[in-house]
């Protein structure tokens, strides 16, 4: 076989194959926006939030997991005029400044929030949630286990829209015409966040649990407290002063 024949064979099989699969409708380069379902356990048959992709919009997450878009917008401290049909979960990563190295709020945060909000089993690792999401979850009429509460408190971060992303905000957030100031987000954005801590938690996937009990069990294996504490909703001014932050900074 000559090189020319080999080249033609290569091009023919690759592009011929692509063409044929396009004709039969099998060729897709984007996901079908249908997450995988749980195959075992009490949630068998339900959509698995771990399969939420970064390309999912808030609107799609809302539809698939039956969570109002307003809840998602509030939980992730987004402006009220955020368009849920265009804002993708991965946009969170570029929208928010990273509060510390290796800590970010993004698609995985949405996965965890959806799992906890809908009481679905999920292995919790080191995923961080905005303080608004944590407060929202803890305010639900749910008897959270102490381990889950500890996990949430340890993985709560104050998120602010980064200056870099401010310029891109219009493209990232396809907004509506009205621009009402968001009191809560304004308050949060004005909060100084100079510090954080990292907490390594490993959760065991729950298999069965009563309806009133959250299905997610959390087992904290190790907790490493760094010198710089995480500022949470429950953090007192005295704790901030103790951490070395001056009154003027506060």
């Amino acid at each position: 076989m000559k090189q020319k024949t080999l080249a033609l064979l290569t091009l023919g099989i690759i592009f011929g194959g692509i063409f044929l699969t396009m004709i039969v409708g099998a060729w897709t380069t984007e996901n079908t926006k249908t997450p995988a379902r749980y195959t075992t356990g009490s949630a068998e048959g339900e959509y698995n939030p771990e399969d939420i992709r970064g390309s999912y919009t808030l609107g799609e997450v809302s539809t698939l997991f039956d969570i109002p878009t307003e809840v998602l917008i509030k939980a992730f401290n987004l402006p009220l005029d955020t368009n849920p049909d265009t804002f993708k979960t991965k946009d969170l990563e570029s929208l928010y400044s990273i509060v510390a190295e290796d800590i970010e709020v993004g698609n995985e945060s949405v996965q965890v929030f959806v799992a906890l909000y809908n009481d679905l089993p999920m292995v919790l690792t080191d995923t961080y949630l905005p303080t608004q999401a944590v407060e929202l979850l803890l305010s639900l009429d749910r008897s959270w286990s102490q381990e889950t509460i500890d996990y949430l408190n340890a993985h709560s971060v104050i998120v602010t829209i980064s200056e870099d992303s401010e310029s891109d905000k219009d493209s990232a957030l396809a907004t509506n015409e009205s621009k009402e100031p968001d009191a809560e987000s304004t308050e949060t954005n004005n909060t100084t966040n100079n510090s954080t801590s990292t907490t390594t938690s490993t959760a065991q996937e729950a298999t069965t649990a009563p309806k009133t009990e959250p299905k997610t069990e959390v087992t904290t294996e190790t907790t490493t407290e760094h010198k710089e504490p995480l500022i949470k909703g429950t953090t007192t001014f005295q704790q901030l002063l103790d951490a070395g932050i001056e009154k003027a900074q506060i």
């Binding site: 290569t10 099989i13 690759i14 194959g17 692509i18 699969t21 099998a26 996901n31 399969d51």
Partner: peptide
Amino acid sequence: TFIQKIHMSSSILMILIFILAILV
């Protein structure tokens, strides 16, 4: 399901490349 970021096109290309590999 496919793992994140992977779609049907990857699987189709995988099959086509395997066919080529078996041939040449």
